[in-house]
Design a protein around this nucleic acid. Sequence first.
DNA 1: GATGAATGAGTATTCATTCAT
DNA 2: AATGAATGAATACTCATTCAT
Lengths: 210, 210, 210, 210
Amino acid sequence: MIATIDIPKAGKREIQKEARRSAIIDAALEAFIAQGFIATKLDDVAERAGIGKGTIYLYFDSKENLFEEVVRSNLFPIRDAAETRLVTHTGSAASLLDEHFRNVYLAMNLPRMPSLMQMILSEGMRFPAINRFFYNEIILPSQRMLRTIIQRGIDGGEFRPDAGELFPQLLTSPALLGSIWNLQFRDHAPLDLERYMQSHIAFVLHALRP
Amino acid sequence: MIATIDIPKAGKREIQKEARRSAIIDAALEAFIAQGFIATKLDDVAERAGIGKGTIYLYFDSKENLFEEVVRSNLFPIRDAAETRLVTHTGSAASLLDEHFRNVYLAMNLPRMPSLMQMILSEGMRFPAINRFFYNEIILPSQRMLRTIIQRGIDGGEFRPDAGELFPQLLTSPALLGSIWNLQFRDHAPLDLERYMQSHIAFVLHALRP
Amino acid sequence: MIATIDIPKAGKREIQKEARRSAIIDAALEAFIAQGFIATKLDDVAERAGIGKGTIYLYFDSKENLFEEVVRSNLFPIRDAAETRLVTHTGSAASLLDEHFRNVYLAMNLPRMPSLMQMILSEGMRFPAINRFFYNEIILPSQRMLRTIIQRGIDGGEFRPDAGELFPQLLTSPALLGSIWNLQFRDHAPLDLERYMQSHIAFVLHALRP
Amino acid sequence: MIATIDIPKAGKREIQKEARRSAIIDAALEAFIAQGFIATKLDDVAERAGIGKGTIYLYFDSKENLFEEVVRSNLFPIRDAAETRLVTHTGSAASLLDEHFRNVYLAMNLPRMPSLMQMILSEGMRFPAINRFFYNEIILPSQRMLRTIIQRGIDGGEFRPDAGELFPQLLTSPALLGSIWNLQFRDHAPLDLERYMQSHIAFVLHALRP
DNA sequence: GATGAATGAGTATTCATTCAT
DNA sequence: AATGAATGAATACTCATTCAT
């Protein structure tokens, strides 16, 4: 009310540039999802972003670099959110695990996440940098959180003592599959993700019982 | 004299043709695995198969058609083997399930299966026919077998009564993930598939206990 | 009469291929001369050669490689011809020198030679390989021949004793300039090359007198 | 008060503008020499000149126009210097010719002259204006001076009577070649320009003797 | 005036597909 | 039947030029 403060830090130009960079990334994500990396034409991306073709190269070095930035900028926020969410949780290990899985499902089924996941899997071999990033920044943290929760459950007698030896993939892979399933088999056998998630969580909790 | 039989002669031709078709499919699989569908050049396939480039078009309509035939011809034998293997089994539902999963792991980790699986996932959206085929001929039969076994376990009191309501994906997705994992993350966190499989089976059996 | 011999060495295909390669080189020379290396579009070259654009790449690796082959294939015959011509000459050193210079002028003013010379000078810095080739295969042999002739003249008392110390460029550069002059200044001051050559030769002979 | 003179103020502006124009021309010359006309990016020129890319267009209409101004502004001073130098000379025709050639070599081997010469030759056909300018303002005056000197030598009995009929190119082309030689063949056969010049002058004087 | 972000026309190169031999 | 030479559509990337700030 008193004063509209013009923060000098963010000049008009700067804001414009960041907005445009963001617009390109969004457009590229759409295009990559719709057609895959190789089949995506930068002409397309430019058109979707409402800019000229050459402009893309003012913000990204190459198509490959653009792809990496798309992945990075879409996964970073998710990872950060996930990591901060559980820190404050108090309650039983079971309820903690329940919340963790709900978070995972939430994140992996955000509007364009399944497609993004599939793309990472698809193009991963072509982009070692992406693979490394995905493993280190997404998978590893997730596995760490899971282990922490399980250990807490074991210590409190809620989970069976040998639960710590389980491969984390055994517990989490259904979530990944659930995320991708409807992309592939929506027409043949659509999956009710809400029920699927509940069943998955119940299944895991059952399996962890002493 | 009159009875000059040329059936075997024709048979020779037929056999030659079938052998060549098979050689092209093998060469194509190698190439597709090594470089992905789009990046694969038919020049490459021809060279690997030891034939001229034009010859491919005597056996397949297009690169896409070739891809479909590659998938089809590699998955058919596996599906057939899997289906016949369990029919004769006698024993407890648990041992039946154990054998089923061992078969699944065996099949999904045959020499080029993981790459093939990943390719189906990667290129699936581009090839609806492949997706349909994969669902109908591989996934559905596998789920049917699983349900049969579980029902047998429930009926015999080996498994908990509500086991039939579990999504089959909850039980089998770790096998799929295990197959692909080492393609993607071999460098970062290689997976000991033998131990992984045993742990997976034990985990499932534990979860199905009444 | 008895038999039209089919030399198996040169199959129809082989001949066709060589003819086409030659046609591309000719078309490329025309285009390079008309527009310079960078400004020449391979579309143009293909059209001039009456072939498809992609065909060029069946014969040459790249535009640069094509350029090098154009230079090479146009200069080799000239060098070879020049080298063999003088070997058999008998007569005074003066008449030998006269014939040598006439040969040089002849070669450097063949239909497309002046343009080719200018191109080599123009693009030389961009193509070290061309420069090296040009120096080693054209300039050096030419200088060697010149020195041989002059030495013969000195030995026979026809030329002044210190003629051997002259830089060969002093004697030959007018021929190079004469070749290029009309490309550049035809409109402003056309050069009568026949008279120019005669004057040049007389001038050199005069300068070499004892 | 009334007599607030703003002429010097405007002068300052003028001087600034001229300095900037000059800076751009210098930067462009460097760039053109280093990379040739087409390969030179105006981004580069702007950076070398320490200005923004758009600023170039405040001083020059186009890249081509800039090139012409580069040539013009670098050759004008040389032409002017050359023309005034010989007017006052007194002495023998031989010493006059000697000084003339020394001047020519001096001019043609100023820091960036050889590159500039080569560029004029290279890009000449693309820039008729440049060619005309070069012929009229540089070559013609040079030939005129040469003819004057030779005539003086003939009149004084120093040179042979028919020296006036010599093509001037026969006498001067070694200087042009000498200027360019080291650009092209420095690596293969570097030319000692001082000795080359002395030899050239002696050679010419010898050839002009009666 | 000066800037530099934005533009889009322009081009070398690749490769699935065809077809004459 | 088999070949591989020929094709030309398709596409990432560059850079002179413009113009809003």
